[in-house]
Simulated assay, not measured.
Amino acid sequence: MRISRSTAGTAFVGGALILTLTALAYPSMLGVQNTASGQDRIIANTQYGPLTEADRDFVVKVRAAGLWEYPLGNLVLQRGTTPEMKEAGEHLIVGHGRLDSTARRISLELGITLPNEPSPQQQQFVATAEGATGKEFDSTAVNIMRVAHGGIFPTVAKIRATTRNSLVRELADQTNDTVLDHISVLEKTGMVNQEQVSFQITAPPKMPQEQVTPPAPQAGAPVRVLEIPENLKDLETVAPNPSYAQPQPSPSAG
């Protein structure tokens, strides 16, 4: 499922593989606090089943999560002070690299435009961890990511339970496995403040929509690819690199 290095229009920029892709219709409301009643509205009928606003937003959220957790995983790998921190960094890089591959593939099939940058709030998460050093860095990075992974669980479960689109269902399965793996390795570091994490997940701060929405890419802009380093491509995790068969069209699709 990885994009070939021979793909036309590709280049390495800032450590990420880039390929040129024409932007499609970008959803206007993608924040994590989106509770619009129209989320179950069908926006497209595809050969893989109907696609709802919630389905589309989920694909974008998976992509946006990788756009900040992948670089933070690299930072953890570089700055982590213990073997457990290094392991967490590896799992973050690999997990989000694999999720990104799936999200990009199904976005092409479903006509979903993906962001190239995380939301301002997510960018601030990375900046906050970047500003710390030593054990403070370990604790800051781990707890930020533990809150993020715990907070996405309800969304993953709801999408998996309700989607009628087989591609979105595939992504939800993979996301669930990856989130569980990441929570496990983050907790293995011994740095998670469970009381703080529980409070932040159950009582998240209210944020303006523009802070939690990833910016729309410009038409024709290169699409960032979260490339997994060669030495980590065979890393075994709870959510191993899936060799999913190509999804078949939904039996109910017209």
Rank of each mutant, 00 (worst) to 15 (best):
I152T: 12
P247M: 06
G31R: 00
Q123A: 12
F153S: 12
S252H: 09
T81E: 02
L19E: 08
R2K: 15
I3G: 13
G73R: 09
Q33S: 09
D40E: 05
K61D: 02
N176V: 03
A161P: 06
I43E: 00
D177Y: 09
E230F: 11
H96G: 08
R2V: 13
T140A: 03
P83D: 07
E187C: 13
N143W: 06
I3V: 15
F199I: 07
P215Y: 07
K135E: 01
N45G: 02
T162E: 04
V238L: 05
P240S: 08
G131L: 05
G73M: 12
L67H: 02
I43K: 01
G15H: 14
M191T: 08
K188V: 07
F137L: 04
M191P: 03
D40F: 10
T202K: 13
L51M: 10
T162I: 10
S6T: 14
I93N: 00
T7A: 15
D57K: 04
P120R: 02
S101M: 15
G254P: 12
A54G: 14
L114Y: 04
V126P: 00
A219R: 02
H96K: 14
F12Y: 14
E84T: 02
H149Q: 13
I144L: 10
V59Q: 01
V192H: 10
T113Y: 06
S107H: 12
A16I: 05
S101L: 14
L226F: 02
E90S: 13
A64N: 01
V238T: 09
P154T: 07
E210K: 03
A127F: 05
N176P: 00
P242C: 04
T81H: 01
I152N: 04
V197Q: 06
G150P: 09
V62E: 00
V197C: 11
R2E: 14
P83T: 03
E130S: 14
D57R: 05
L77M: 14
I144P: 01
E187V: 08
A64S: 08
R41N: 04
K158C: 06
P27A: 14
P71N: 10
T82I: 06
A16T: 11
V60K: 01
P240M: 07
H96N: 15
S107Q: 13
N176G: 07
R224N: 00
R146G: 04
V62N: 00
V238D: 02
F199C: 12
I183Y: 05
P249F: 06
P115T: 10
P208R: 06
G220A: 05
A203R: 14
H96L: 15
R5G: 12
G9T: 13
D234H: 06
D181G: 06
N241P: 02
T133P: 00
V179R: 00
G14P: 08
T128H: 07
S184K: 10
V76T: 14
L21W: 10
A25E: 13
A253I: 10
S243A: 08
F137R: 01
G131N: 07
S139Y: 07
Q122N: 11
G150A: 09
G15R: 15
L67V: 11
T189V: 13
G15T: 06
A25N: 12
T237M: 03
P251E: 05
S101P: 08
A65F: 02
L24F: 13
A172N: 03
L19A: 09
D181T: 10
S6I: 15
S101F: 02
T52N: 13
N176A: 08
S28Q: 15
A11N: 08
G9E: 11
L180Y: 04
P83E: 08
